[in-house]
Structures are given as C-alpha cells and as structure tokens.
C-alpha cells in the first residue's frame, strides 16, 4: 500500500496542475466558460481515495501534521469550489481557486513523505468541519473580491483584461453567498461538536492554543452570522455580502497569525 500512497501523493499535484492549466485556458482564451469541468470530480475522487487510504494505512485521520492538513485543505477547497461550479454553471473563476489548491497540494506532497505522523486519534475528526469552514470562507473571500472588482469595472466602464473573463456580476454574488453560507454551516458544526468530542477526553493541544482556537472560531462565527442574518432577513445586497466575505477572511487570518505568535 505504501508504494501506492507514494505514487498517488505525486500524482495529485500533477492532476491539480492539469486542472489549473485547463482553468487557465478558460480564463485567458475565454473558452468553455459555461461548461462544468468534467475532470474536476474524478480528480477530487482520486484525492479523497488517497486520504482514505492514508487513514487506513496509519490508523488515524490524515490530520496528524501540517502537511496532511494542507492536503485536506486542498481537497476541501476543491470540493467547495466544485459545488459552487456545479450550482453556478460557470468555471471562469476556477483559475483563482485552483492556484491555491495546487500550492496546498504541491507543498503537502513535497514534504509529506519525510514528515513523521504524530499520534492524534479519531477525535481530531472534529478538525474536518473547521477546515471545510475556513476553506469555504477563503473561497467566499476570493469570489467576494472578484465581485467587488467586477462591480467596480462595470461602474467605471473599464473594459480591461478582467471585463469579459470574469463570470457575470449576479453569478459572482451568488457564488460568494453560497460559499459564505456553507462556511457558516460548517463553523457552526465545528463549534457545536468541539466541546462534545473533547469534554470526556484530554487533548494534546496546549491550553493557550485551544483558547485561541475557540476565540478565533467564535469571532468568525459572529462575523459571518451577521452576514447570514443580513442576507436572509435584511435582504442585504450582494455587494455588502462580498465586502463582509473579504473583510471577515482578512480578520480571521490576522487573528490566526496573532494567536499563533502569542500562543
């Protein structure tokens, strides 16, 4: 099994690179913009298969070290994007997302073999919805930024490079909303399941780090609940949701970095 793991480990960045080139062709050559990418689902399945195999091989979920987490992040980013592409039927933004996915997986594949896996236990599965949530927030921030750029281009009559390479404005708004909402659902799951899973079990995470995680998670939840309620109850415009998606993600990043330094 270990040779199969090594092969797939190196196959994955290549597959993501192919997807990145394909999305790049769509963006630069303005072709096949409104056709769902047929290769996306198979590549994500290969990636999921790899992580399942790795879990079976090491007897624990693939969240033992930072490089495994990078790989899970790559998969979850790709999966959230796949849902967005499926719903929005537009692949013009794929280049931005898959640049990130490729970098995650390339970094993971480069160091995964050399790194030893720490013992974590199945309780750390709780990390999965958190990763999906932060991935969704990252994607919401990307779409939010594209939405703001597209809106600005259209308002200022700027027919530059991005003009007809981005998806339509209303679609970007919808994509931002879908990603933000799914992130909100997953961060809620994380916040609810965290105490349940760890209440009867000691964790290997230091107290300061745990507190920082709880604080960041809660602040993220508070930021996005405002957007969700605003959209559902106050019918906020996409422009405002996009601004929250971008600023929310920036705030989370700053908090994560600061908490990492402090703890």
């Amino acid at each position: 099994m270990s040779s199969l793991l090594i092969i797939v480990n190196w196959l994955l960045p290549l597959l993501y690179l192919v997807l990145l080139v394909d999305y790049g062709a769509t963006f630069f050559l303005r072709t096949k913009a409104q056709i769902r990418n047929p290769w996306l689902a198979p590549v994500l399945c290969v990636h999921a298969f790899f992580l399942v195999l790795r879990s079976i091989h090491f007897g624990q979920p693939p969240l033992g070290n930072v490089y495994e987490i990078f790989s899970v992040l790559a998969l979850s980013t790709g999966a959230v994007y796949a849902v967005v592409e499926f719903v929005g039927r537009d692949r013009r933004s794929g280049i931005f997302v898959f640049l990130l996915v490729f970098l995650f997986q390339y970094t993971s594949s480069s160091f995964l073999g050399a790194s030893s896996t720490q013992s974590t236990g199945w309780a750390r599965l709780h990390v999965v919805p958190a990763l999906v949530a932060y991935t969704a927030f990252a994607i919401a921030a990307i779409y939010g930024l594209l939405h703001i750029l597209a809106q600005r281009n259209l308002k200022q009559h700027h027919f530059g490079m991005l003009f007809d390479r981005l998806p339509p404005l209303d679609l970007l708004g919808r994509m931002t909303w879908y990603a933000l909402f799914s992130g909100f659902v997953f961060i809620t799951i994380t916040i609810v399941t965290g105490p349940l899973l760890f209440s009867h079990q000691a964790t290997d995470v230091p107290d300061a780090k745990l507190t920082a995680k709880i604080v960041v998670g809660s602040i993220a939840w508070l930021i996005y609940v405002v957007a969700v309620l605003g959209k559902l109850l106050g019918k906020w415009p996409s422009r405002r949701i996009s601004s929250i998606a971008v600023t929310g993600f920036v705030v989370i990043m700053i908090l994560l970095i600061v908490s990492g330094i402090l703890s």
Binding site: R30, A150, D164, P168, D170, R174
Partner: peptide, 23 residues
Amino acid sequence: TQLGRGSVSIATSAVELAGQVFS
C-alpha cells in the same frame, strides 16, 4: 481563434454588457 468574440456593433454590445451583469 478569438476572431468572432466580442460585439462589434452598438446593438450587440448591449447584449454583451447584459451578459456581464446577468448570468
């Protein structure tokens, strides 16, 4: 090639602009 891309008349450029706002 991209030879046929983009509107080249005032009438069809309305459609192109609409395509940038509405999916």
